[in-house]
Design a protein around this nucleic acid. Sequence first.
DNA 1: AATGAATGAGCCTTCATTCAT
DNA 2: AATGAATGAAGGCTCATTCAT
Lengths: 219, 219, 219, 219
Amino acid sequence: MANPPGSKSVAKRRAPAQARARQTRALILEAAIRLLEKRGLRAFSTNRLAEAAGFSVGTIYQYFENKQEILDALARHERDRRLARTTRTLTSHAQETGTTGLSLRDRIRIVVRTELHAFDGRQRARKILFDLSWRGQQHRDMDRPVTVLADMLAAGQVVDGERGAVRLSATDSFVLTQAVAGIVRAALERDEQMLLAPEFEDAVVELVAGFVEARRCKP
Amino acid sequence: MANPPGSKSVAKRRAPAQARARQTRALILEAAIRLLEKRGLRAFSTNRLAEAAGFSVGTIYQYFENKQEILDALARHERDRRLARTTRTLTSHAQETGTTGLSLRDRIRIVVRTELHAFDGRQRARKILFDLSWRGQQHRDMDRPVTVLADMLAAGQVVDGERGAVRLSATDSFVLTQAVAGIVRAALERDEQMLLAPEFEDAVVELVAGFVEARRCKP
Amino acid sequence: MANPPGSKSVAKRRAPAQARARQTRALILEAAIRLLEKRGLRAFSTNRLAEAAGFSVGTIYQYFENKQEILDALARHERDRRLARTTRTLTSHAQETGTTGLSLRDRIRIVVRTELHAFDGRQRARKILFDLSWRGQQHRDMDRPVTVLADMLAAGQVVDGERGAVRLSATDSFVLTQAVAGIVRAALERDEQMLLAPEFEDAVVELVAGFVEARRCKP
Amino acid sequence: MANPPGSKSVAKRRAPAQARARQTRALILEAAIRLLEKRGLRAFSTNRLAEAAGFSVGTIYQYFENKQEILDALARHERDRRLARTTRTLTSHAQETGTTGLSLRDRIRIVVRTELHAFDGRQRARKILFDLSWRGQQHRDMDRPVTVLADMLAAGQVVDGERGAVRLSATDSFVLTQAVAGIVRAALERDEQMLLAPEFEDAVVELVAGFVEARRCKP
DNA sequence: AATGAATGAGCCTTCATTCAT
DNA sequence: AATGAATGAAGGCTCATTCAT
């Protein structure tokens, strides 16, 4: 009534309203992560979320079409954090040492380490989201962090000193990415501390490096 | 007479009953797989299962303690099929060629191939069960098929020609096993056909072989 | 603003909602008593209650944790009615006649009569609730009405004319209370009309008075 | 087939068959009591009973129309034990001392004590049965043990030395019987040990004696 | 924008009873 | 007489979602 659809007459009002809306959305998502962490997926119901967020169920449905959308948003958010972290680390290292100073193995180690440490804190929530997105449609999206390196390799960007450029096929890239993801997934399930052990990191780096080595263009 | 009630003196009487019972159980499990395949995990309710199996809910609970137990039985069954297949192939190849004639790479390929082809038919159901057990307590059990090779390697049983014996640490074994499992899982999700492509198999074999190579005791 | 979401600044908004909620709760309880009365405990299922109350099951669970809680609320309510009635009668009689003017036998008669008449209307429902609480944990609570007199006697508050004060031990108090409760329970079961017969009241008063007399401090 | 209905040709076979049948019935009931004692009423299902008894469900339904009938039989059995015990004690005491030598108070004490001690062992089962029959139709039957004395009194059989005969009305008898039953019931619920305490017995005896005293024919 | 009471299909499970063998 | 597989209505309860306010 005060707002028949399409008649947003006062533009000025909009901005703060939108700001508030964005904040509400953020609060809901934050509460969602907390709830997931504390109570697990089974207890993650819209009603409980509403209570945890301090809003009413209705409000939640004002910001999200349905429950799944919330989970998706959460997963996307986590993925972005991981992605940002990986690229940040990768580039910062590059800048410090100069692009050429970073060996292939070093790069691999950086990506792997970032991936392995991605689940510090809120482990439970992250595991759940990881699973969920693995299962769901957005699988592809969730892998992006690991894909960063694979993509670089696939595009032949990485030249490793005197040895030839590395070039991965789409299949190779997929295999590599999913292998790492699978390892992380399993470790998360079996024993989270495992992820932080140096010999674990070594093994993963070795796995990746071994594969890349095998794929190197034979000169 | 002295016969405690319930233990019929004539064993024959019990036989048909047990045969029928075994058949009913099998029918339920078969219906379960079918239901899982056709409608997915979310539609897999005890009532729907009963209907699909052509029994009443009560009957189902005569054979299984609860819903989870059905899923477990299914998963166990699938795993056993995979495990049997892997070992069978491994040993039959060994016999054909003579034990020593089977190179490490050959062995790897056999295990990998069996694993990749394990999900022909009923893919959806198998994927669901795979996921479920990955998540649940029986994780360890479900990996067994892939673990076969890893264990052989870990135990240093495989000697590859003139080159030294291969020996994997527990961590290495875990990483290797989970990498393969992760790849299969992902392919299953993304595009089941992928699993059958030769270059896919090659990539996985390469990954495994590369890792094993790196871990080989340098003579 | 600073308002934590969910706590409306205007208290008026909440009022109607709460009023409605209180009313719904009352409606459910009222339907529960009716159902109990008409169909008995065995027919008292949450689904049937929902139907009888004109709400859906879900709504019922919005107001009560579980089925037992409804029964408890009902029982508590009934007990409060009885308790209030007993004390009210006791005090009003006292005021009319002056405290000293009320003989021990008079007091006993008042308590007994209130107890015997407590189950007018909805007899079946009340019987069921009585039983239920007799059985359950709140046994102690449910006896309170009868305990009122016993407590007075136990505390030695009642002085009966020139004769000594009456004082009951804990055991005596228990025996007396439960004797009366047992009689009511049985009469309720056998023939509710019995409770209203004067000679029945006389017998119970005699029982109580006889016991108290026996326990009186011999001067 | 071997036995078309109505063709019990051999009479001699019948007797042992009936003996066996009686034994089976007894075995079922014994298992029922055990089950009730160990697992409580909620776990008392026909299937579980069958298992506990070592028969199949079908067999149980050959001996009892339905579940309730089993419970009834159990309750009746328990009552008979109590009844037998009370009368036995009463008469044995009478014989030892000569009828006149047993004072009214002594008789009361005997009946009360037998009643209070009736629930040794299998307390849980007995409490359940007590409750069940209290509730059910056979209420009347179950009270019989306590009624023995009341009946004697009601019939004016008891003369107490020089003082006049005691005579109770039907109402009096009911009140007395149920008072005792109520006390036992409550003690059973609250703390079974209570039933064995001497001061508890004293209080109950006092209650009964006090009432009887009051009802004595005033000479 | 926000509320939150209300919905109701659906879930898993139990158990008294029947009946073909 | 005994078996026990099969039945299926019914039970208590959950939760994503809607909609009048």
